[in-house]
Design a protein around this nucleic acid. Sequence first.
RNA 1: GUGGGUGUAGUUCAACUGGCAGAGCACCGGAUUGUGGUUCCGGGCGUUGUGGGUUCGAUCCCCAUCACCCACCCCA
Length: 423
Amino acid sequence: MQYSIPRGTYDILPEESPKWHKVIAEFRKLVEAYGYAEILTPIFEQADLFERSSGKSSDVVKKEMYRFTDRKGREFALRPEGTAPVARSYIENRMDIGSLNKKLYYLGPMFRYDRPQAGRYRQFYQYGVEFIGSNHPYYDAEVIAILWNYLTGLGLKKLRLELNSVGCPNCSKDYDKALQSYFQPYLNQLCPDCQERFERKPRRILDCKVKECQEIAKNVPVQLDYLDTSCIEHFAEVQQYLDLMKIPFTINPRIVRGLDYYTNTAFEVIYEGIGAQNALAGGGRYNGLIEQIGGKNIPAVGFAGGFERLLLALEEEAIALPGHPVPEVFIITIGSEAQKIIIPYLNIIRGKGIYAEYEPDRASLKAQLKAANNSKAFYALIMGEEEVKQKSAILKNLESGEQKLYSLEPISHLIKAIQNKEI
RNA sequence: GUGGGUGUAGUUCAACUGGCAGAGCACCGGAUUGUGGUUCCGGGCGUUGUGGGUUCGAUCCCCAUCACCCACCCCA
């Protein structure tokens, strides 16, 4: 019986992991420049936390959560998203006391029981930031700026930032009512899914892919027309700040975030060319969340993005990322005497942080040189019977073929030659 | 949860309407004994994803199952 990896998961193999390190390091570097500090929360939480925050009717809670019961019958879930745990930690650790605002970022795996597809996995890795403590529209724009600078900073060009405002709970209630009265006459012409949405979440009808539904929704009232004055103002200011930061965006009134806790600003970064799952990242303001899960009424704004889709996009634009590291020197020995002499020096060289490779199980000089060549090493260091006598070794540049004899004492000479690429 | 496609060597793919399972790349070895990358020569019995069935005979047909891909749904 051969074991296989669970469905919808994948191994990050050695050839891939340097790419992950790179995009993660870039993210850390950038968010820290904005003053964000990392928060790490457990990968499981009380199931109720997600039900409360995302909304019982959301798909995430209804069918995508990995739930389990522990030995004492407590209900837990693997986190399907990162915002609710951060909010929970914020409340639990009294982060509202003291400094006015909290700037937090996180990285890590999330879990959703979905059907896998291009750019969609059951365990996937997200990066995200949460700005907690202010309703100032500047921060909406700042959070968007972080995301935009991150993605463009990696070299991506084919990005589209889409912006919308879903208003505050009052506005969205009005809007839902307006939608219901608009769709009422067409109710039995809508697809079964949308008939259900009509009651639960009329806004979802807007991004239904069924032709008939799209046709019916053509002249639907626009959300933005149902915002109250303070929400209109907030949205306008967010746009002004984005303009100041020269971040291009398009207004898409149809952006509907899947989770219940969003208010006002909602945004997504879309990337065409990586399949149907084309949202690289999404986020928005969630002023109601913290109070909803037992904290004070504290506003917040944030986003989350997926690394898998980011890497797909980088590949799509052929943006180079680091691969497996290449040895600086590949050690080659002929005979056991040479091996005995070279091993102590090999350790010294590696101790200096020089990546040196050695595969003594290869038989011939030829085979070892071949291996050195395949490893793409810059140098081969060859020690045969001749060199044993003089306690020296041949340093060979594998690209030019040039080679030179070096004494092993003092070893610092050889180390310098390697570091300075003398030949 | 729904629909479509695919599953053969490490990898990319062949095998006419069912008739002994092959090729490129990669990998390993060799080309007069201490020099790789080019060239030449040699090297593959792999549970044809798994389990059943039909058949004299199945990679090919049928059923089931698993996985992957694509799309719906939803979203990162």
